[in-house]
Design a protein around this nucleic acid. Sequence first.
DNA 1: TTATGATTCATACGTTCGTTTTAATCATAA
DNA 2: TTATGATTAAAACGAACGTATGAATCATAA
Lengths: 219, 219
Amino acid sequence: MEVRTVDTRERILDAGERLFMAHGYEGTSMRQITGEAGVNLAAVNYHFGSKESLMQEVFRRRLDWLNEERMRVLDELEAEAAGQPVKPSAIVDAFFGTLLRMAGDENRGGMTFLRLLGRTLTEPSEFIRAFLAHEYQAVMDRYKEALFKALPEVPKAEIVWRFHFMLGATSYAIAGTDALRLVTDWQIEAEDSTDRLDRLVPRLMSFLLGGLRAPLPQF
Amino acid sequence: MEVRTVDTRERILDAGERLFMAHGYEGTSMRQITGEAGVNLAAVNYHFGSKESLMQEVFRRRLDWLNEERMRVLDELEAEAAGQPVKPSAIVDAFFGTLLRMAGDENRGGMTFLRLLGRTLTEPSEFIRAFLAHEYQAVMDRYKEALFKALPEVPKAEIVWRFHFMLGATSYAIAGTDALRLVTDWQIEAEDSTDRLDRLVPRLMSFLLGGLRAPLPQF
DNA sequence: TTATGATTCATACGTTCGTTTTAATCATAA
DNA sequence: TTATGATTAAAACGAACGTATGAATCATAA
């Protein structure tokens, strides 16, 4: 009784994750999901209640671990620092590096979930935004505070804005749509895909830290 | 005969722009659009042929001017430089500043179009991505070349990636969803909305330039 | 072995979707 | 004024949508 159930649930979650990533929430139908999962159409409503609840569960399955891990790493950093502020680069790596390193872990969704998350941060549906805001709230508050302490000379409003920009750069990078076809053929040939992913992390980290530590704008 | 036509077309485009921005392409129905525009349901198919074509026209109406302006400004900069490379900050401002300054121009879509564009860069629908790629191709090639010349010591692949990151930070910033509720109440009260917009441009510019000029990552 | 609750299945419900059709209405030129 | 082509209008199309129903099937405990 237990085996089949878990199996069906997981198959639905996997299919939903991939299809929501590929076609968006509104652009994915229940019939596509159950078709790809190889389960009956009614299984989604039986196991999850509704399409909206399924979407939330797709995220919860990955985000619970991610945000706990982010909390844990920041705990560690602050314990090591022993009262001193944590280095900005360590905070940025704890938040964004922890996220990006999920890409290599297929058991935690890998690139598929990362791309889904990146796209969903600009998703219009209200219920998704509300859900993500709730799911993230504690983590965002902790990391904002850590950055405030790490950069005491920078106005808090500026830090929040730059956190915002870092989120945007990251989510677009992991969404990986490249809507404007910036990455041309010669670059795709120059590096294979695992290379590109391995190099994305340090590349993005350099960019984020450069932006975070840039001179303040003059108004 | 001419007056009513243009009127109807524009009303549909305006409604489509706003609703696609608010609910996404798949999340917006023809009946919502024609309802808000105050026109008959069949008017969209009569004037534009299909929902997809309407979406493309919504973008073309704004992007044609934007990308021509971007070309024109870069022409000017290169003429002034007289063979010398153009400063990176000037290139970044020509590309992203020109975009952001549309926000204040209601005749060119204002914030509504900007937010639509920001969201659409991570939109999943294939036809939108293909359309945007085509619409942007010439501009992207010109700006990439300009950045290559402006930063001869930086590997081209790095420049392309950082262009990518800048696009992401910008599109997320203008999408303005703030899905993770980063900007809390005390910050909203501290600045009124026109203030926030006026300050967004220099803030984002500082961030982008800091990222663009950051030290190269060590692999 | 039988009873029980969990799960799967085929099927249908009512709604909404984008699009099409055909007729009415409009503005303009002859 | 009338003829003509452009535009608007009302209505309907078949398809696809998310969800609900009730029977069949399954695994397990008594």
